[in-house]
């Protein structure tokens, strides 16, 4: 590598070093206040997670019952599938700003926007999971005298669980990513140093970007673990691949082999 290449590489590495330094060490920000360091970053991560968990809780509370019910009754196939297609076409930032413009800034409004963003994959996956549950198992349950809600709770839901969690996982990663731009609508999260470099400096922007990326990967890995753990052992063995749920995790990632 020539001298010029070395210089460029050196400056890139030192820029990333500054970013990492922001994560572990407090410094005086451009605005004069103290920024960065473990305490502040931990607070930002906490705010970030709080927003994500709140949004996911609302999304699950809304989407799971609807998806399971639609799947159980075999109704609304078109609705259940097209909701995720429409959801994919709406940019997260547009949704955030529509809520901001119509409802104003604030934790609750941003939470609702993120929840709305999270609903389609959860709903579609819950629906598909129940619809694809082994009809023989459902028949057997009915033959044993189970009623509708019992069948849903004790047969269809356990069989659909890997797919249900796949939807929750897709949405969670998406929500963690989108919570990064929440400061644009007045909620401070890990995105704050990214969006306001005038306060945190360029190293803050880079440090926060690294943290957000790690957070998303951690969320993905954690939920993949949960998904794997709740997949009934029989299903794992039947396919010979413990991560079957992962491969067909979500409509976004789902391989569509038919048009």
């Amino acid at each position: 590598m020539d001298a010029c290449g070395m210089t460029v590489l050196g400056s890139v590495l030192s820029t990333f070093g500054d970013g990492l330094d922001f994560i572990v060490r407090e410094r005086t920000g451009r605005g004069g206040g103290q920024v960065g360091g473990p305490a502040e970053n931990a607070r930002l991560v906490w705010e970030h997670l709080k927003l994500c968990v709140a949004a996911m809780a609302i999304a699950c509370a809304v989407a799971l019952p609807i998806g399971l019910w639609l799947g159980h009754t075999r109704r609304g196939a078109f609705l259940a599938v097209s909701v995720s297609n429409v959801g994919r076409a709406v940019p997260s930032i547009a949704l955030l700003f529509v809520f901001f413009a119509f409802l104003g800034a604030g934790f609750l409004n941003v939470t609702l926007a993120l929840a709305l963003l999270a609903i389609p994959p959860i709903l579609t996956n819950a629906y598909v999971g129940v619809v694809e549950a082994d009809p023989d198992a459902v028949d057997a349950a009915r033959g044993m005298g189970m009623r509708g809600p019992q069948i849903v709770r004790r047969v269809e839901l356990p069989l659909a669980l890997p797919l249900v969690l796949g939807g929750i996982r897709t949405s969670s990663v998406n929500v963690v990513a989108t919570a990064t731009i929440a400061p644009l609508a007045g909620v401070v999260t890990l995105g704050d140093p990214i969006i306001n470099p005038s306060i945190y400096g360029q190293e803050g922007r880079l440090g926060a970007a690294i943290l957000v990326a790690l957070l998303a990967v951690a969320a993905e890995a954690a939920l993949a673990g949960v998904q794997c753990a709740v997949t009934p052992r029989a299903l794992r063995r039947a396919t010979g691949r413990p991560r079957r749920g992962r491969l067909i995790a979500s409509p976004r990632r789902r391989v569509t082999t038919t048009p």
């Binding site: 890139v12 963690v176 990064t180 957000v212 990326a213 998303a216």
Partner: peptide, 17 residues
Amino acid sequence: ILYTLPSVAVFFLLLPI
């Protein structure tokens, strides 16, 4: 993994490069 990384973070991680 690439798909998991938030796009906003990736934009700023690429900026120095």
